[in-house]
Design a protein around this nucleic acid. Structure first.
Lengths: 159, 159
DNA sequence: TTAATATATGTAGTCTACTACATATATTTG
DNA sequence: CAAATATATGTAGTAGACTACATATATTAA
């Protein structure tokens, strides 16, 4: 065992990121193996617009939990791929409303069996003694109650 | 609840990354609050060189689980900060041997109480029904047995 | 009803990892 | 022992998120 794994908890951010990358890369390969030209990072936007067909930029950003600049750059890519299109909101001229194109809808249809496969494979992979998805949710809950910084600050006073 | 959280498992890579970023940012603030000028990303290298005082570039990369180019860029930063220094290996001229400078050693000494605080705060944060650190380790174990791609491929045949 | 504030979108540049490629030295093999 | 291969290091450019700042339109308050 290397010293980093021994240090365990101190490198937790690094471990999380590494795992994320690994899963994402394989995810991309799965789409590819199904003959689908789709990047995993596009999933949140496509999935959201499939379930809520007309949304503004900020609404999408909130749904997917990204900042709006990150969202905008995803939207640009998806518009370039002609998977989504946009139009000005006639009521509120600041807003740009996004929706799937027909091509986008067809792609979602094609991807749904892949999503099912990914869902099952992921569920199988994380179904261990400590369920990763639930652990994430629980930690997110903990952080909502009290940030990591505040926890460390509280600990600091004690020491 | 937004549609992404509902989709749960399909966006697990995104969730992992977001959590990682959040923890890292707060980590940086904790060092800062202790008057220590230290970036969390430096931790793996510094911690490794503290425990194994003389290592080559690739040895460090392996210890911390990064690619060597990523490691080189960290080493550059740390050398610039004068926290580490390097010398050619006299036996194997390809190798560059890294070690902590005195400044680096002093900094590690100063950081150790902070690491203790971070350890306790992290342990507290992830000590929920499903322990995040153990979940990560378990999933890493699962992936070693069978990659995510192979799991999806196996599932694909079944569908 | 104008001024101040808030919201929506967009751009530029940053951050922390990566992959792909290049070069130098060591080691192995025919 | 020369050629082929492997290993160690390095550089350049990419990826997927971010923050900080800028601008346009809407809303609220004086």
């Amino acid at each position: 065992m290397n010293v980093i794994d021994e240090s365990g908890i101190l490198a937790i951010a690094t471990r999380l990121q590494r795992l994320s990358d690994q899963i994402r890369k394989d995810g991309f390969q799965v789409y590819k193996a199904h003959g689908i030209d789709f990047e995993p990072k596009w999933f949140p936007v496509m999935y959201t617009l499939f379930h809520k067909p007309v949304l503004s930029v900020v609404e999408i950003a909130n749904e997917i939990g990204y900042t709006h600049p990150s969202t905008i750059s995803l939207l640009k890519e998806l518009e370039k791929e002609k998977l989504i299109r946009s139009k000005k909101d006639k009521i509120d001229e600041r807003k740009r409303l996004l929706q799937l194109t027909e091509k986008g809808q067809i792609l979602v249809g094609k991807m749904q069996p892949v999503w099912d496969v990914l869902k099952i494979a992921t569920a199988e992979m994380i179904d261990t003694e400590n369920n990763l998805m639930r652990a994430i949710e629980e930690v997110e809950g903990q952080l909502k109650e009290k940030s990591f910084f505040d926890r460390a600050a509280a600990q600091m006073k004690r020491v």
